[in-house]
Design a binder for these strands. Structure first.
Lengths: 173, 173
DNA sequence: CAAGATTGAACTATCAATCTTC
DNA sequence: GAAGATTGATAGTTCAATCTTG
């Protein structure tokens, strides 16, 4: 019992068991499940080993490095990194203590906070990027054909609609 | 700087910056990244809210429920759930204390340990399954066409080759 | 009082070290 | 001494509560 009925060779499988997913659906889900677990783990390991950064920390610094003025509102940064406000806030505290970013209250109209990448933070991401990108290529991108990449973009788009009832602004970055 | 060059409108972008990934590759990676973060989070939430189980705990119980004798060696269970031995061991301790599984030394030749699902554990997974499967359908499976599912299985297979140098035994379960 | 953001407490995962068995 | 498995310490995430501003 996970996403389908118990194995038929089990003598005491519940009689009411039905197939919840077809074989194809089940295969897709299990494959996706394994990939979602192992791919981030592999990228995390490389970053920890070579750069003493987590994948999430990398994402935060990277998104800031690409933003105009290297600045983003905490709220937007959370959305770009798919993180909860709480998670981002904790990590921002660490990154701020490390000297990689600064937080400033939005002046003028002000209930929001800006995160700004420091020069040190920019140097850090520039240093870390090549190794990370190489890992993304080796473990992910280079494993796939252009057509598979295209389909994957479609797939992720469809899934996002189911996860974010509210709108995708547009392409990120 | 994340997986490609810094934005062109940045006055002080490093002159040596190059495109690390093509637009398509970058889009695929960012889309995948968001999906890998949000999909497990959504499934976790449903299970926590309705069943007081984490997604990983669910997977552990589910894999056991499908195994012959509802029994698996810890090592195999770790592989099936894409977890480190350490992670599985900690969770097994919790699940054992909750009465959902038992651990027994493999008798006869014995450096390995068996995890056995209890009747209580089986009841738990049977109870949790419908809600979980409904969520998997709503957030993932039903968003995709059969063709997309097929491609996704291929994609995950290719990526797995890059992540597990060693062999995939065969279809899981 | 709602939105944006942060905090502290409880929980979970990861890493290195350990223990046992072959 | 290596494989299978576990443990304890450390680090990170989540949840609920809080604080501030419009």
């Amino acid at each position: 019992v996970s996403t389908h009925a118990a194995s038929p060779d089990l003598p005491d499988a519940s009689p009411g068991d039905r197939h919840w997913l077809t074989d194809q659906e089940r295969a897709a889900w299990l494959a996706m499940s394994a990939m979602m677990t192992k791919l981030p783990a592999a990228l995390d390991q490389q970053l920890q080993r070579d750069c003493d950064l987590s994948l999430f920390e990398y994402m935060v610094l990277a998104m800031l490095s690409e933003a105009p003025q290297r600045t983003l509102r905490m709220n937007d940064l959370a959305a770009l990194t798919s993180a909860s406000p709480s998670r981002l806030s904790h990590v921002a505290t660490r990154l701020e203590n490390a000297g990689y970013l600064e937080r400033r209250r939005c002046e003028g109209r002000g209930r929001s906070t800006n995160a700004v990448l420091t020069a040190q933070g920019y140097a850090r991401i520039v240093e870390a990027a090549p190794g990370h990108v190489a890992e993304v290529r080796e473990r992910f991108i280079d494993a796939l054909s252009p057509q598979q990449l295209t389909t994957l973009i479609e797939i992720a788009g469809e899934v996002r609609k189911r996860l974010d009832p509210e709108g995708p602004w547009e392409a990120v970055g």
